[in-house]
Simulated assay, not measured.
Amino acid sequence: MSETEEGRGGVNRVEAFSDGVIAIIITIMVLEMKAPEEHGLEHLWAMWPIFIAYVLSYAYVAIYWVNHHRLFAHAARISNALLWANIALLFTLSLVPFATAYLGEQHFSHDATLVYMCVMMLPSFAYVWLQSVIRRTGRQDAAAQDYHQHSLRKGMVASAIYASGIALTFVSPWAGLACAALVAILWFLPKGPIDALFGG
């Protein structure tokens, strides 16, 4: 298939589709949080691993939605590469509800944490592909270049923390999850600290 020549209208359509898929992913995650049938707060308290896994995953999906929205502000047209990179990102994010449910149900066991960390790292690879496409085919002004440089810095640091988290999971599941939480905090931080770290 040849690349399309759709402009901002096509970009908006892809972004709207992505918003819908991400909304479904969040809905699936919350539906996995089944209320206990037994009476008593102790049965509700017993669900804390499921709730913590949900909160962490919700933060991740929210971060990807925010960054996806900001990234598409710099897209100028639709190409096959952009479409497939975006589909790849959505596919990797669609695995998050399963990994989240597995992590919570298994009470942060070693194997469940390892699966969770690996699943969490997959969207980062897909996002790098998507960003490289938009950086090449999208806006080329100074603001766009500044955004890409800043985002790529954070992406490199986040990937390194993810990789460390996967390795640390073999030592302690909580150490691996701490790295996952650190990545979320990293993306919530303003521009300054990471850019200062890399001299940007």
Rank of each mutant, 00 (worst) to 15 (best):
P193L: 04
M120V: 09
T92K: 00
N67Y: 07
C118A: 14
H110V: 13
K191P: 07
Y64S: 02
F91M: 04
S124H: 14
A160K: 04
A158T: 11
T92G: 02
L122D: 07
Y116L: 05
A181K: 03
A81H: 11
G10H: 05
L189H: 02
I161D: 11
G176S: 12
Y147N: 09
V66Y: 12
A23P: 11
V115S: 08
R153I: 12
L168W: 04
A16W: 04
Y147L: 04
S132G: 14
A81W: 08
V61A: 01
S18P: 03
F91I: 10
L186Q: 08
A180W: 10
L31H: 02
A126C: 09
C118P: 04
P190C: 13
W48E: 00
M29L: 03
A175F: 11
P190G: 12
A196Y: 10
L83W: 00
D195R: 13
F170K: 01
S79E: 14
G199V: 12
I166Y: 11
I194G: 13
W65V: 06
V14W: 10
L197Q: 12
N86M: 00
R135P: 08
T100D: 02
D111G: 09
I26R: 00
A144H: 04
L168P: 08
S94R: 00
S164C: 15
V128K: 10
I87D: 01
F125L: 15
G200P: 06
P123T: 04
Q106K: 13
N86Q: 03
A46H: 13
V61T: 02
N67G: 07
A196L: 13
A35W: 01
W45G: 12
L189Q: 08
L90Q: 00
C179G: 13
I87P: 01
I194S: 14
K154G: 13
P97C: 03
S124R: 07
L71H: 04
A46W: 06
I63H: 02
G20W: 05
V21G: 01
S132I: 09
S159N: 10
P123W: 05
G104P: 03
I185V: 15
H43N: 13
H148N: 10
